[in-house]
């Protein structure tokens, strides 16, 4: 961590790491897909179980990504580390995209299973609120004219949201059991068979690696963007001084 603590070192190290990260992520996803399409169909869900292999990893990443934003926010507020803010800012749109995927694939899975596009199921609803929280974070980032001033306010909002995540999860579960209609098919279904577990695991690791590749690449972009901005401001200042 100390090695990486400096943006210049981070840029140098990540430049060497990037091609490998992309390659390993692509390879793991390919293996996961191969295993998924070879796995037997579920006796209850038929072939729609194929959607599970891209839905569950997306849902997992939607939560992991928010955790990364929250951890980065602690780094921003406590240590005022420049890379922590870069990490949180780079993670937010990627996390929102994975959350969006979890919602869309969940809906596409639900239609043949439940007969409707959307069920106010506890899990889907929690993920929907998580998605709204991502949008709130991004909205606050975009509201600041000076991006360097946005870092700590956004970190506060991210941490407030992180404290709320378990409370929201708990309340949505409670709300759902209170309004539970007869018996709906649960997304987690029956206990997962081993034949389905391996492809799911491979896809989960593949998605996670893909996330890290995207995250590191987006962090590099963000660092470069800030350098460009700083240099432009400096150049403009020099111009004004010369006149």
């Amino acid at each position: 961590m100390i090695e990486l603590a400096n943006p210049t070192r981070f840029m140098a190290l990540s430049e060497r790491l990037m091609p490998w990260l992309w390659a390993v992520a692509a390879l793991t996803c390919a293996i996961g897909l191969f295993l998924a399409f070879r796995a037997p169909a579920d006796y209850q869900q038929g072939q729609t179980v194929l959607i599970m292999y891209i839905h569950v990893p997306a849902a997992w990443l939607s939560m992991m990504c928010y955790s990364i934003i929250a951890i980065s926010s602690v780094g921003t507020l406590v240590w005022r580390h420049p890379l922590a803010d870069v990490s949180a800012k780079a993670a937010a749109p990627i996390g929102a995209a994975f959350t969006f995927l979890a919602l869309v694939t969940g809906s596409l899975w639900g239609k043949p299973m439940w007969g409707t596009w959307w069920v106010w199921d506890a899990r889907l609803t929690s993920v929907l609120i998580l998605f709204l929280m991502y949008l709130g974070l991004i909205a606050l980032w975009r509201a600041f004219d000076d991006p360097s001033r946005a870092a700590r306010p956004v970190a506060i909002l991210a941490l407030v949201g992180f404290v709320n995540v378990p409370i929201i999860k708990f309340s949505v579960d409670w709300w759902n059991t209170l309004h539970q209609p007869a018996s709906v098919f649960r997304l987690d279904g029956p206990t997962i068979d081993n034949a389905m577990l391996w492809p799911l695991l491979a896809m989960g690791i593949g998605y996670t690696l893909l996330f890290f590749a995207l995250h590191v690449a987006a962090m590099r972009n963000e660092i470069m963007r800030r350098r460009v901005r700083a240099m432009r401001v400096k150049a403009a200042g020099a111009l004004v001084a010369a006149e």
């Binding site: 709204l132 709130g136 909205a139 606050l140 509201a143 949201g161 709320n164 929201i168 309340s171 709300w175």
Partner: peptide
Amino acid sequence: LTVALRRGGLLVPVMVLPLTVPVLI
């Protein structure tokens, strides 16, 4: 969070409403 922002008006509900879901429930 939005006190220093000129365009803070609509931002407050967008940020706060998801957090109020447990209270509403």
